[in-house]
Design a protein around this nucleic acid. Structure first.
Length: 196
DNA sequence: AGCACGATTAACT
DNA sequence: GTTAATCGTGCTC
């Protein structure tokens, strides 16, 4: 069952933790490609200088101002796509970046999209999982709650708080403090699918 | 019209 | 540890 809209209206950091253990599903050529979410990051509105919305509303980040439960997919470094889930209320620009999955279904197709020696490496990174699941600009703005959609999230075994690791977000480069060090990255402790 | 840079990855030394 | 790959975006001129 697809997660209901109300799930995505949670406060963003809470949602980032609640998404751990859930199953991200992509329908591709009639088959299911899926993985368990094991690592996320929260991006929290215009005041968060690490968030794309810190410059205000632009054509690129407009989806983040939309309904909770939309997919915000953006292009970066000239070659990579990143998947985010829009959170909280409409007009408040916040989202959760999905950074890593533990592959569950459709591993053979994922290997065709992204050949690797061991299946645990298929989705161990934000740009790796979008390659493996064939997520790109065509999915920017799609509604994860739409019954007809080709991308959605299903509930999983909840992860107890004691099993959730936290730390600073990755790759922020020139983002000023204190935003650069806010511990808004979450992962499942001791999980092999978490990115390096 | 031109520029600097990025929520990364893989392939180097 | 360092760096090239590669191009859309937002800002300056």
């Amino acid at each position: 069952m697809r997660l209901h809209r109300s799930f995505y209206t949670q406060p963003t950091r809470q949602l980032a933790q609640a998404l751990l253990g859930c199953r991200l599903v992509r329908r591709w050529q009639g088959q299911r490609l899926s993985g368990r979410i094991v690592e996320t990051e929260a991006y929290l509105g215009e005041t968060d200088l690490a968030c794309h919305a810190h410059v205000g509303r632009t054509p690129r980040n407009a989806v983040m101002y939309g309904k909770p439960g939309l997919a915000y997919v953006y292009f970066t470094y000239g070659m990579h796509w990143m998947l985010n889930v829009v959170s909280e209320a409409e007009d408040f620009p916040a989202a959760v970046l999905i950074r890593a999955l533990e592959p569950l279904e459709g591993l053979e197709l994922m290997q065709q999209h992204r050949p690797v020696p061991h299946s645990i490496e298929l989705c161990r990174g934000p740009a790796k999982l979008t390659q493996a699941l064939r997520i790109d600009r065509t999915l920017n703005g799609v509604d994860l709650c739409n019954r007809q959609g080709e991308l959605w999230i299903e509930a999983g075994e909840p992860v107890p708080t004691r099993s959730v690791g936290r730390g600073p977000r990755v790759g922020l480069g020139t983002t000023p403090e204190p935003w650069k060090s806010k511990p808004w990255r979450y992962w499942i402790k001791h999980n092999q699918g978490v990115s390096k």
